[in-house]
């Protein structure tokens, strides 16, 4: 499969979970991938696994200077950029009544502000045929106990693609939202716990959590020309969790 032959991609949060699975898939389909995240050890381990067509840049999506370094590295080595997968995300549950300003900032700085600057700073390197993918969540359209900040931030991410499809008119760059349901990653383990993960699996019509590779398959589709008539869309990859 060579749908992404010669393409250059940036994947934020690419050292683990859905981001890492997507980096593997993009490379298998022919792409050169820059992964981005805050933990050097995780980045190093990922690059060792991904092989010669991967590079890592350490930084936070909520730090503009870090993002500038990321895109400078992309420009220096590849000259231009075809695919941005703004996938870095964070958030922990906290019930209404206990919410603090720091808790709100944790979710919104990464998921909303981080996504906005990840994309805005990528644009000078992108051109016709480019594809931007934002990671939403089934939590963006459903409510769950303690999910105030995380759910609201993911609803915001879903909406970013609507305005951006307008702002990007005429550029040939598409932007879509990929919304996973419960997926077996570190984030799910932290946010839901063992019992919570079991419960989410049972609530899902397909009766289990997703493997990150199943989310990556749809990310590759959205990155490739196979989705050439899609922009501003939300694609749910949630086993039916938020669709009924």
């Amino acid at each position: 499969m060579t749908r992404l032959n010669g393409k250059t991609a940036v994947i934020t949060g690419g050292a683990t979970g859905i981001g890492l699975a997507s980096a593997k898939r993009f490379i298998a389909e022919g792409a050169f991938v820059f992964i981005y995240g805050r933990r050097q050890a995780a980045l190093d381990a990922a690059v060792a696994e991904l092989g010669p067509n991967a590079r890592a840049v350490k930084g936070s999506v909520s730090n503009e200077v870090d993002l500038d370094r990321l895109y400078a590295a992309v420009k220096a080595e590849r000259g231009s950029l075809d695919i941005v997968f703004a996938n870095a995300g964070a958030g922990s549950p906290l019930p209404l009544g206990q919410i603090t300003a720091e808790h709100i900032d944790e979710a919104f700085d990464t998921n909303v502000k981080g996504t906005i600057f990840t994309v805005q700073k990528a644009l000078p390197l992108m051109g016709p045929g480019g594809s931007i993918i934002l990671t939403g969540s089934s939590a963006g359209t459903t409510g769950a106990p303690g999910f105030t900040a995380y759910s609201a931030s993911k609803a915001a991410v879903r909406n970013l693609a609507r305005s951006w499809a307008e702002d990007l008119k005429g550029t040939g760059i598409r932007v879509n939202v990929l919304s996973p349901g419960a997926t077996a990653t570190e984030l799910a383990k932290q946010a839901l716990g063992e019992a919570g993960q079991k419960a989410y699996g049972a609530m899902t019509p397909l009766q289990r959590m997703a493997d990150p590779a199943e989310i990556a398959a749809v990310a590759a589709f959205l990155a490739s020309p196979d989705s050439s008539f899609m922009t501003a869309s939300e694609v749910a990859v949630d086993g039916g969790l938020a669709q009924l």
Binding site: P205, L206, Q207, G240, Q243, L244
Partner: peptide, 15 residues
């Protein structure tokens, strides 16, 4: 239809 049928066919793993 896709909503109800998803549930009716889930035991057969038909998506």
């Amino acid at each position: 239809f896709a909503r109800a049928w998803t549930l009716e066919l889930k035991d057969r793993k038909i998506r």
